[in-house]
C-alpha cells in the first residue's frame, strides 16, 4: 500500500520535473507560481490544518520575508539567497511578537485579528513605514539569485529552484506532522481541553506553529522577491491570504498531497480557463460553499493516523 503511493508520487514528480523541457516560458512561469503557492499553502497548513487555528493574515508574514530580502539586498547588496535564513528569522520573530498576545483567542476571534494584522502590515507598507518600504510603489531592482556563480533568471531555471524548495518543504512538513510536535498539534485541534489535561502546553504549541509557519512563509517571500525583482504592497493583500487559505481547504486541510493539489487547482485552473477570469472568483466562492457542504475534508483529505500494535501486526489504532 505504502509502496504504491510512493511510486505514484515518484512518477508524478518525474513528470513535473520534465515539464519545463516541453512547456513554453509562460506555462513554466505558471508552474513556478503554483510552486510558490504550494509552499505558502504548506506553511499555512501547519497553522490552519494541523493546529486548527484560523489564520487569514498569512500574507503579512510572507510580506515581512519579502521586504526583508528586498531592503537588505537593495541597500547592502547582500546576495538574495544568503538572506533566506534571515527572512525566516524576521518573519518568525514578527509572528512571535504578534501572535503572543492573541494566541489565547480561539476560532473566529483569532481569524478576525489575523485579518486585522494583515491589513495593518499592508497599510504600514503603503505608508512607507520607517522610510524603508518605498510606499505604494514598493521596492525595485532586487538582484537575481546567484547559486555558486550561476545567475538564475529564466523561468525554467527558477522552476528547478522553486520546486526543489517545494520538495524540501514537503519533506520537512511530512517529518514534522509525524513528530511529537505534529501529534500534539493534532491533539489540541481535536480537543484543546483534553490536550491540556494530558500535559500538552497548548499555548506554547500554538505559538510555535505560528512561528514555524510564518518563518517558512518568510522564506517564500525571499524567493518571490528574487523572482519578481520588484515587490509592492499590492502583492500582499488580503486576497493573497484568502487564496492560501482556500487552496488548503479545497485540497484537503492537514494533508500534504491535498495542499499541493489545491495549489494546482487554485492557481493553475484560472490560467487554463483564462476566458473566464472575471467569473473565476465568483465560482471560487460558490465552490467553497459547496465544498463545505458536500466534502468538508477537501478533495484529498488527510488520512487518519494508523499505528500497528507491536504484538498483533494487523491491529489498527485509530485517532490522534
Amino acid at each position: 500500500m505504502m509502496e504504491k503511493r510512493t511510486f505514484i508520487y515518484l512518477i508524478l514528480g518525474a513528470i513535473l520535473a520534465l515539464c519545463p523541457l516541453v512547456l513554453n516560458p509562460y506555462w513554466t512561469d505558471v508552474l513556478n507560481n503554483i510552486g510558490l503557492y504550494a509552499v505558502l499553502g504548506l506553511s499555512l497548513n501547519l497553522i490552519v490544518g494541523h493546529a486548527g487555528l484560523f489564520n487569514l493574515g498569512h500574507a503579512a508574514f510572507y510580506a515581512v520575508g519579502a521586504y526583508t530580502a528586498a531592503i537588505l539586498n537593495t541597500r547592502f547588496h547582500i546576495p538574495v539567497l544568503t538572506l533566506l535564513p534571515l527572512c525566516a528569522l524576521t518573519a518568525g520573530l514578527f509572528a512571535l511578537v504578534v501572535a503572543k498576545p492573541i494566541i489565547h483567542l480561539t476560532g473566529d476571534y483569532l481569524c478576525i485579528v489575523t485579518i486585522g494584522v494583515g491589513e495593518i502590515v499592508r497599510i504600514a507598507l503603503i505608508n512607507n513605514v520607517f522610510g524603508l518600504t518605498g510606499g505604494a510603489n514598493g521596492i525595485f531592482g532586487i538582484s537575481r539569485p546567484n547559486l555558486l556563480g550561476f545567475v538564475i533568471r529564466k523561468p525554467h531555471e527558477f522552476f528547478y529552484l522553486i520546486w526543489f524548495f517545494v520538495a524540501v518543504t514537503a519533506f520537512f512538513f511530512h517529518r514534522l506532522e509525524n513528530s511529537r510536535f505534529g501529534r500534539a498539534l493534532n491533539y489540541l485541534r481535536e480537543d484543546e481541553t483534553a490536550a491540556e489535561g494530558s500535559g500538552i502546553d497548548t499555548a506554547h504549541y500554538k505559538l510555535m506553529s505560528f512561528v514555524i509557519g510564518a518563518a517558512w512563509a518568510g522564506m517564500v517571500g525571499n524567493i518571490f522577491a528574487a523572482k519578481m525583482t520588484i515587490i509592492s504592497p499590492e502583492s500582499f493583500s488580503f486576497w493573497e491570504s484568502v487564496l492560501m487559505f482556500t487552496l488548503i481547504i479545497l485540497g484537503g486541510s492537514g494533508s500534504i498531497p491535498g495542499v499541493l493539489l489545491g495549489a494546482f487547482l487554485v492557481i493553475g485552473l484560472p490560467e487554463i480557463f483564462r476566458g473566464f477570469t472575471n467569473a473565476r472568483m465568483m465560482l471560487f466562492g460558490a465552490a467553497m460553499i459547496a465544498m463545505m457542504i458536500f466534502r468538508s475534508g477537501g478533495i484529498l483529505p488527510a488520512r487518519p493516523r494508523r499505528y500497528s500494535l507491536p504484538q498483533a501486526r494487523q491491529g489498527q489504532g485509530g485517532g490522534a
Binding site: G107, V242, I249, N278, M281, M282, G285, M288, I289, S296
Partner: peptide, 20 residues
Amino acid sequence: SPRLSAVVSALGASIFFSNA
C-alpha cells in the same frame, strides 16, 4: 458541522457576492 466549515462557507459567500 464544525465551526470552521461555517466560517469557510461564509467567506465563500462573501467572495461570491462581491464578484457577482
